[in-house]
Nucleic acid binder design. Structure first.
Lengths: 222, 222
DNA sequence: TGCATATCTGCACTCATTGCAAGATTATAT
DNA sequence: ATATAATCTTGCAATGAGTGCAGATATGCA
């Protein structure tokens, strides 16, 4: 819960993380915890921001200083993942195959990311229309980020379109994989890597077959 | 205020479309028109529901009887498209290849659908964050609908997953195609069919290549 | 014509979200 | 350590979306 260095007083003004930043992070966590707990207990819609704020011991006004909307409490981590993924893509060698780039980068991110989406949060999202919609938006944004990261490497219009399509596919795969993951009741991040690999293999195979079937149709009708 | 046909009394009870249904449709259109016009002129956020209602000459309360949210005025047609698509899928021969099923059905729907998404509405969506998000949701729902329509034909878990992936890909292709379409400034629905066909061919080819590249990687690393 | 049903409207209320300015807290320079 | 600047919190008031309710109004039908 608290990672605060208890020996701070020996080094009064270490700029690693001032008291300000620490308190802010703590408050933030307090709000998230309060919200998740209340939502899980009473349902998203019946919990008011006032209630969350009160439970987290901040003013309602401050709540909105931490999170732009009530829903964002649940999806706070999402922005980070997008940035991490973009960075991971950018870190790959410039002229690597897009397919390889995206697989390596995403695999690395998924292995690293301490997925805060616990089973409880997942259930919450699934059972709340408003949150489910937000979840779609989350994936859409992620796809957008990924697509842009991949497109900067492409100069042709065709290449850019391929990048967009690839991004869409991979994010869809991630979404489906995620559903699968929770459906199988896996909560530990032990074998994330193995699971991810299997998922990629499966997706690539399906793509191949789908694409093959599709192009054959067009060749025939030509 | 009233657009009632004054000659109605000649045929008192024709059941084609009672006055009730007609008025409702007219009112609905009046609201949509008022909304689109106001949004385009002043921006989505600065227009209030009160304003729309006043312009369309209905009470604010009635507005919410026609549309569940302010945003839905813009996406009203979306539900229909989903239903039409689902029906088109269901109408295809039961044991046809999923790839063919989806291509035929979607092509037919796109050709038919009198796309109410005019250039103005499109611009509106693109320039309004709230609407852009709703747009994502629209596609997500469409994907869901399509996936379900395809899944009922599959019995194996593998087949169901393939259906979901296929749905995701096709809807992504549709989204990208739509962007392309407007980017090219095409507003007439003259060559929709040709455009759709080209898009499908492109997507299938890309899929094949992506899938091929991906599976090769996995075979190699095995 | 007269009842049953579907619509429309005004009213009051809840709640998310925002702007503002005063008050409290932390960081920094002297 | 103290003054000062930069930040953080909060209370207050206001806007606007969305909802439940009950009383008109209008329409469909016998």
């Amino acid at each position: 819960m608290h990672r605060g260095k208890t020996a701070d007083f020996t080094k009064p003004t270490e700029h690693v993380e001032g008291m300000r930043a620490r308190k802010r992070r703590q408050t933030r966590e307090r709000i998230v915890n309060a919200a998740v707990q209340l939502f899980s207990a009473k349902g998203f819609d019946t919990v008011t921001v006032d209630e969350i704020a009160a439970t987290a011991d901040v003013s309602k006004r401050s709540f909105f200083d931490y999170f732009p909307t009530k829903e964002d409490v649940i999806f706070a981590w999402q922005d980070d993942f997008g940035k991490v993924l973009a960075a991971a893509i950018a870190a790959r060698p410039a002229r690597e195959s897009p397919v390889r780039t995206v697989e390596e980068a995403l695999t690395a991110c998924l292995a690293t990311a301490a997925n805060p989406a616990s089973l409880a949060v997942d259930r919450l999202i699934r059972s709340t229309p408003a949150l489910r919609e937000r979840d779609y938006v989350k994936y859409a944004r992620l796809e957008q980020t990924l697509a842009e990261s991949l497109m900067v490497r492409e100069k042709s219009a065709r290449g850019k379109l391929r990048a967009q399509l690839l991004a869409a596919i991979v994010i869809a795969g991630m979404r489906l994989g995620n559903e699968q993951w929770y459906r199988e009741g896996k909560t530990d991040s032990s074998n994330t890597k193995e699971f991810t690999k299997r998922m990629f293999r499966l997706v690539w195979n399906e793509l191949y077959e789908i694409g093959d079937a599709g192009r054959r149709r067009h060749e025939a009708s030509r």
